[in-house]
Simulated assay, not measured.
Amino acid sequence: MEWYFPLKLLHILSSTLLFGTGLGTAFFALSAHRSGDLATIAHTWRHVVWADNLFTWPAVVLQPITGYLLIDRLGLSLSTPWILYSLILYLLIGLCWLPVLWLQARLRDLALTAQRSGNALGDDYRRLFRYWFALGWPAFVSVIAIFALMVLKPS
């Protein structure tokens, strides 16, 4: 049990980082988009992509590692209902997030290209933004559901 508390702390901190970075970048990306200011949009997408690489990726990797080690230390099974549901939701989040990574990079590139050329953002940008926005909802709801499962541990 000597590693239990450091593992648990790392698990909680990485989940907080995962959720906080996602919520923060989504807020700023949506705010920039709504501003209609091309320089702000391009600048924000550049930072959103950077933040995902710097903060979200490490948290995404740490979550299943620390989670598995905690399950092992506690002698629980992956088939324990709240753990199984959390894993399913984590996979759903991943299925949403992986295309979001590509979308964010593409949105950044479209915004930077428009800014450099002096053109307005086109239909491609608006279409990809709608996909990005739509994929964020199931991911965020799933993260909140996982938090609830971790706290409540329903049978």
Rank of each mutant, 00 (worst) to 15 (best):
Met1Phe: 13
Tyr4Ile: 11
Pro6Asn: 03
Leu7Ser: 05
Leu9Thr: 11
Leu9His: 06
Ser14Tyr: 08
Ser14Ile: 11
Ser15Cys: 10
Thr16Asp: 01
Thr16Ala: 14
Leu18Trp: 11
Leu18Gly: 03
Gly20Gln: 03
Thr21Glu: 06
Gly22Glu: 03
Gly24Trp: 13
Gly24Asp: 04
Thr25Met: 15
Ala26Tyr: 13
Phe27Pro: 09
Phe28Ile: 03
Phe28Met: 04
Ala29Asp: 07
Ser31Ile: 00
Ser31Pro: 06
Ala32His: 04
Ala32Gln: 02
His33Ser: 07
His33Lys: 14
Arg34Asn: 06
Ser35Asn: 00
Asp37Met: 12
Asp37Val: 01
Leu38Thr: 08
Ala39Phe: 09
Ala39Met: 12
Thr40Trp: 01
Ile41Pro: 01
Ala42Phe: 11
His43Ala: 01
His43Trp: 09
His43Arg: 02
Trp45Leu: 15
Arg46Ala: 15
His47Thr: 01
His47Lys: 10
Val48Tyr: 07
Asp52Val: 06
Asn53His: 07
Leu54Gln: 10
Leu54Ala: 15
Thr56Ile: 15
Pro58Gly: 01
Ala59Glu: 02
Leu62Lys: 00
Leu62Asp: 13
Pro64Lys: 13
Pro64Asp: 14
Ile65Phe: 04
Thr66Asn: 02
Gly67Arg: 12
Tyr68His: 15
Tyr68Glu: 14
Tyr68Leu: 15
Tyr68Asn: 12
Leu69Lys: 07
Leu69Ile: 04
Leu70Met: 14
Leu70Lys: 07
Ile71Trp: 09
Asp72Asn: 02
Arg73Trp: 12
Arg73Met: 07
Gly75Ala: 00
Leu76Gln: 14
Leu78Asp: 00
Ser79Leu: 04
Trp82Lys: 00
Leu84Asp: 02
Tyr85Asn: 14
Ser86Gly: 15
Ser86Gln: 11
Ser86Glu: 03
Leu87Thr: 11
Leu92Tyr: 05
Ile93Asp: 10
Ile93Phe: 11
Leu95Ile: 08
Cys96Ser: 14
Cys96Pro: 06
Cys96Glu: 10
Leu98Asp: 06
Pro99Val: 10
Leu101Ser: 08
Trp102Phe: 00
Gln104Asn: 15
Arg106Gln: 11
Arg106Ser: 11
Arg106Phe: 12
Arg106Lys: 05
Arg106Gly: 03
Leu107Met: 14
Ala111Asn: 10
Leu112Ile: 15
Thr113Gln: 14
Thr113Phe: 10
Thr113Asp: 14
Ala114Gly: 08
Arg116His: 05
Gly118Ile: 12
Gly118Thr: 05
Ala120Cys: 00
Leu121Ile: 04
Leu121Glu: 08
Leu121Ala: 14
Gly122Tyr: 11
Leu128Cys: 04
Phe129Val: 07
Phe129Arg: 02
Tyr131Asp: 07
Trp132Ser: 15
Gly136Leu: 10
Trp137Tyr: 08
Trp137Asp: 08
Pro138Met: 09
Pro138Asp: 01
Val141Gln: 06
Ala145Cys: 09
Ala145Arg: 04
Phe147Asn: 06
Phe147Glu: 06
Ala148Asn: 09
Leu149Thr: 12
Met150Ile: 03
Lys153Leu: 05
Ser155His: 07
